[in-house]
């Protein structure tokens, strides 16, 4: 198999040693079918065992390995050497504090995922223990794409709104809220709209669409947020006009 020499420029930061992050160069002989993650693993195994980064599945599903590759938020296991120039810059995800090297602090977004109540809320009596809900394929289709989110947080790294204002709930968490709102089994939409209608919710988003462009799973959070804006506006007018609100 062909070997190609890649110059990796990796951001390093050890809070116990470094005042601020800096770049370290590694020259990595890459096989042609390698992803950037394979190159990082090569560094870790052969060149420098002190490099810190997160990864696990190497199959684009665990969401651990989001980093900036040449300025773009990407999964390193899904970004291939064959598609990149000879010089590749790897940095931790933008818009997040750096814990160490390529590892960022995720507390804030984990909190936000929690905040939107991402679980089925039932107002009716609980369903019978051994009976499933029926859900047509069409009803599943409505939210299926939104369930694909792997929480890689690339969208947060791309979102200018989140960069400017950390109170903004942000793309993945809003998409997650919308996923449950659209689920025919859920009855918690009104609760969630209440959380989201205030200023840190959907209205902060200026629909730049950067989040959707970088999402490795095509979740399209920007579209979800727009749909929620329409939902929110409808709910507002329904209440103004004294119409019964969305019960579910």
């Amino acid at each position: 198999m062909n070997i190609r020499q890649i110059e990796l420029e990796v951001m390093r930061y050890d809070p116990e040693k470094d005042e601020a992050p800096w770049f370290q160069q590694y020259s990595v002989p890459c096989q042609e079918d390698w992803a950037i993650l394979d190159a990082l693993n090569y560094v870790k195994d052969e060149l420098d065992t002190t490099l810190a980064y997160r990864w696990s599945c190497h199959m684009m599903v665990c969401g651990s390995c989001g980093m900036m590759i040449n300025g773009e938020p990407s999964l390193t296991c899904k970004t291939f050497v064959r598609d990149l120039p000879d010089k590749v810059r790897v940095e931790p995800l933008e818009n997040f504090p750096i814990e160490r090297d390529l590892v960022v602090v995720l507390d804030d977004v984990m909190q936000k995922l929690h905040q939107v109540q991402p679980y089925i809320v039932r107002k009716d009596a609980p369903p019978q223990e051994d009976k499933e809900f029926t859900q047509s394929r069409g009803a599943l289709m409505k939210f299926k794409q939104l369930t694909m989110c792997i929480n890689c947080m690339c969208c947060y790294a791309a979102c200018p709104q989140y960069g400017l204002d950390k109170n903004f709930i942000g793309p993945a968490a809003l998409a997650l809220a919308h996923r449950y709102n659209l689920d025919s089994r859920d009855q918690g939409k009104s609760d969630r709209l209440d959380i989201l209608a205030d200023h840190d919710g959907v209205w902060e988003c200026s629909f730049v669409g950067a989040c959707s462009e970088v999402c490795p799973k095509h979740v399209d959070p920007a579209a979800a947020i727009q749909q929620m804006k329409i939902d929110g506006a409808m709910e507002f007018w329904k209440q103004k006009l004294g119409m019964p609100g969305d019960k579910s």
């Binding site: 504090p97 814990e99 960069g163």
Partner: peptide, 8 residues
């Protein structure tokens, strides 16, 4: 711990 916040 001393998380580094990149200036925006």
């Amino acid at each position: 711990r001393r998380p580094y916040i990149r200036p925006m």
